[in-house]
Structure formats: structure tokens, C-alpha cells
Design a protein around this nucleic acid. Sequence first.
DNA 1: TTGTACGCGTTATCAG
DNA 2: CTGATAACGCGTACAA
Lengths: 329, 329
Amino acid sequence: MTIYDIAELAGVSASTVSRVINNKPGIKESTRQKVKALLREYNYTPDENARGLVNKNTKLIGIMLADIRSAHHTDLTYVVEKYLRNKGYCGIILNAGSKTEEMEEAVRLLEKRRVDGVLIVGSVFQNDRVKNAISKHFANIPVVFANGEFNLPNVYCVIVDECDGVERCVDLLIQKQKRNIAFAGTLDSPSSQEKLKGFKRAMIRYGNSEEALVILEGEASKESGYQMTQELLEQHPEIQGVIYSEDLIAAGGMRAFWNAGVKIPDEMAVIGIDNTIYGELSCPQFTSLDNKMTEMASEAARILVDAVEGRQNPRKIMLFSDIIEREST
Amino acid sequence: MTIYDIAELAGVSASTVSRVINNKPGIKESTRQKVKALLREYNYTPDENARGLVNKNTKLIGIMLADIRSAHHTDLTYVVEKYLRNKGYCGIILNAGSKTEEMEEAVRLLEKRRVDGVLIVGSVFQNDRVKNAISKHFANIPVVFANGEFNLPNVYCVIVDECDGVERCVDLLIQKQKRNIAFAGTLDSPSSQEKLKGFKRAMIRYGNSEEALVILEGEASKESGYQMTQELLEQHPEIQGVIYSEDLIAAGGMRAFWNAGVKIPDEMAVIGIDNTIYGELSCPQFTSLDNKMTEMASEAARILVDAVEGRQNPRKIMLFSDIIEREST
DNA sequence: TTGTACGCGTTATCAG
DNA sequence: CTGATAACGCGTACAA
């Protein structure tokens, strides 16, 4: 069923049908009604792709993230998808993994689809390979980078003050009389580096020497959190508080403390990052740094649609994280 | 940059360029190389939408689910997206909510996009409104229904024996000397009804009367799980075990038991459903019925792509659930 | 108020 | 081996 079929049935030309569909003026009311009736009767729907071919847009938005299964990204994706759809766009979500080749592959794929704009989520994408891929393949469409930065003319950035946030986490622990604090988690992404920077800065501010800081590196899994925490208990009995780079890792840590019979928060204070549901599910519930993922999602989606539709916005927006205190501090 | 631009640069016709792009035979090797070089130089990528217009496909697959934030659906979506992309398709994920109007809206949207196939995830979609929408708008494309059934010629179904699974959960609890068992959770979706049916059947098999069964209805949230469990403790002190219709609800229940000082599993046994990470995060970790969401995901994705590409499969596939025992039983 | 003709970027057919 | 040409479904100047 095409506009030609409808046109024939209505005894008019295809352009008339097109005009009716798009609510253009200058159509006799009786014609309009006749065509509308036919459109309904055959429940005709315009082919959005064919439309895009002539309109030079696809109403498609690419969403690149490493892995949608990480809870904070799931929430973000949900918010973004809802917003986009409300504005008449469809999101194409790509699990681009954490290897640069996969990321480049994802970029090429979105180029093939001629998406109107791209949302990149997660600082793991903040590397030269991806930056080059973007300036090469997305040169003419707006890109919003959530939780990362690219200094490119068509890229908007929405970031969170994770560095400051972690500093405030340290402040909180100190205030709770926990002077010996460790940092445990992933260290490889730019985001992790920001968190670590905040940790170091605050700890040094409280008189610790950088060399003496207890920093454990692991992966983004609860198993890794468990393992790092066991190591911590064995090798650093002086530690009174831990900041984990992600809630999921903290959840693993909480279990290790639980199994070891460590009393939370009396013997050990714990803070996670992301403020996902994991913090609420743990026993006891743990404090987490809310890095405003849902707020970031709505800002990013809004800015992207604005850019696609020609409305301007600041190239960089900074959100402020918040500590959500629970039983672990 | 179009094939015409490349053609001009190469001094050949657009058809030749097209043939090179699609690796068609019957092109002089020197011509092929010359064109390929240009393609690379200008990093040209064919417009997939324009391609689809003539090929009568879009390489787009619609994925309808109520809410991607429910953990079991997130995992499923991940697996599906990976598979689809590997096969050259893109997934359009729609959070279609749980209201029928929203669902119908999602169906219309996917029709506009001319998706090659649709994956419907979750038994909440198993209602007449959606069924009608499908037979009206997706009459000519394959549809796979994960965790639900429609008796329509173009719909494939992948389901899990949740009814049997819950029966086996009851068996397990009985075997653990827990004779007084309650069921708590959502009751509105067909899937929930299946679970409830299994519960009733097993309980009656063990000599209980249907009227005396303890069944609590709530929502799919940990808060609801918490509340139902408090109610349970107050009004049904005889209960020794609970089966929750979802892990998330069970997680709320676990917290209620924890707060009330109820010893798990000695005083109370707990089983959730979905085998998500929530079971592993709770303290103690709780047993869960694995309803094979990732297996369902790969089967559904495979069947859908098969159908889109003209390969046949059984119209209905049943997977078998498994109890993953943890500390709560 | 309506129809004709063309173009969007691509592939397929057919002729050369 | 290669090039015209038509077609996919739609929107829009331009003409009537």
C-alpha cells in the first residue's frame, strides 16, 4: 500500500494524497476528507525510510554504549529512548563493547543508517580512535557525549563532577572518624581516573602521602569487588573505609565484609558510586555517590534533539553529583 | 557522497560502482581496484535506507518490551542486539509500557519504520488489543513472541515452563520440610498466572485446599515485596516459605525478613523467579527459578532472523526452567 | 485546488 | 565487462 494506491482509490493524484497526509493547506475540504477516509480504511502508514530519502533525515538516533546491562546505563537508556520517541525519533542502541575495534565498527554501522544524531554514553569511548572515527564518520551530524569529552566542533558534552564527588565522599568518611580509607575498582576509564583523582586529592588534603594510599585495581564485577575486598582485609587491616568505583563492585565488597563478619559501618564504612539499586539491595544498604545518570540522560537527549533540529545549546554541561547516605556510613 | 560521485571520480557508471560495492562478479579487476580505492579514499558508505527502498527490506528489527529496566529483560535485550547485529540487522528497542494504548502506539511506530521483523518480549503483551494490532499492522512480517503466545500464522512463540517450574519450587520447599508456603507477587500478567497456577497445583497435590492457600498480590517492585512480606509476617505466622513471582520482589521480601530478624532459611525459606543478579546480591543469597531468559533471547533472535530470511522453524518452542539453589532454601 | 515531473540513493534488468 | 534506464515510496517545485 503506497500513496499511489490510495491516490488511485480516491481518484486523485499521489501528490494530493501526500499533501493530505502532511496536513498541507490548499486542499478542498471534501477531497481531504475522502482521502483521509481511505487512509484510515486501508490503515495506510507512510514509509518513514522513503520519506527520509527525500527529506534528508531518518528520524533515527544512534546510541552507543559499552554494555546496556550495567544498571546505570540501563536507566539512562530508558530515559533517552522515552524522550526520543516522544519527539518523533527512534533510538538504535548498540552495545559497542569496550574494545576500540568494536567501537569503530559501531560508528560505521550508524553511518550506514544515516542517523540524524548520535549519543555516546560512557567515558570508555573517550579515546583517539573513537574521536577520529567520529570526526571522520559523523562530521555532519550532532553528537552528544554523556560522561565524556571530545573537543570537536559538532560534539556536545554532558559530564558530572565525579572528581569533586569522590572528594566529598572522602570528606564524609573523615567526618565519620574513618581516617584510613582505601579506593577500589576499575582504574582504566577516564571516568575512573577522575574518581581516583578526587580520592587522591582529598586524601592528600587530609595529610596522607600519595605513596602511602591504598588503591586496588579490579574489574567492573561483583566478583572482582569481593576479591579486592578479601585482599584488603588480609593486607590492610588498618583500613576503616572503602570507596568503590562502582556500586556493582561495592556490592561484591559488601558480601566479602559480610562473610568475614566485619561490622558495617562500625568497623568499616563503605561508599559505592552510581547510586543504582544495588546499594539499596545490599545488607546493610550502602551509601552511594549519585552521579545523576537519569538527569544526564534527559539533558543529553534534549540537547541532541535540539541540535538535530537546529537549536543551540552550550557545548558543555556539568552536573553535580550528590551523596546518598545509607547504612554503610 | 553517493555512488554517482564515486562513479564520476572513477570515470565509470554508477552501476559499476554498485557492483563493486556488492562484490558482484563480472567486473574487470583493474576497474574494481580503481573503484575500491576511491571508495576507501572518500570513505564512502552506502545508504542503508536507500538500499532498503529497492531491496524491500530495512535490516531493521523492532523489539517491543514493557520496560528495559527490568533486569531479566535487560539481559535478554543485550543478547538479542548482539545476535541481530552479527547478522547484519539493527534493533529498534521500544519501551512500550504496560498500557494497551502505548503498546498499539509502538506497533504503529514499527510499521512506519517498515521493520523486517518484530520481537515481542513479555507476557504483558498477550492481550487481544495487541493481537489485533499485530495481525493488522504486522500481517506480512515474522513476529517472535518471547514468553507469550499468539495463535497467528506469522507469529513464532518461545516460552518457558513457568508453571512446572513453580511446581518444582514448591517440591523443593516441601522437601526442605516447609509445608506452609505462600505465594507473593504480581498476578496480572499471563506469566504471573502461569506461576500462580503452578503454585496452586503443587500445593493442592500436597493436600492443601485451594481456599486456604496464602496468596498475596502486589507490584513488581522491591517496595511492594517489602510490604507484602510485612503483611505476611503479621497475618500468617505459620508460613515457613515464600515464592515470589519476581526476584526484585523477593529482594524486597528478603529485606523485610532481615529487618524483622527472621532467620533465613531456618525460620523462612525464600525463592525468587528470574535468576537475576538480585538473588546473588541479597543477604543471604536467595534461590531463584531460572526461567532461561538468555537462552530464550538467543532462540528468539535466531528464529526471527531465520524467518526474515525465509528459513523455517517450529512455531512454538518450549524451554525448561531450572532452580538455582542458594542460601535461602 | 490539483496534477505533472523530478529527485532523493540505491539496485536490477537489459542491451550493448 | 559496462552503461542506460527504470523502479523503490515519497515530497515538492512548478505548471495548470
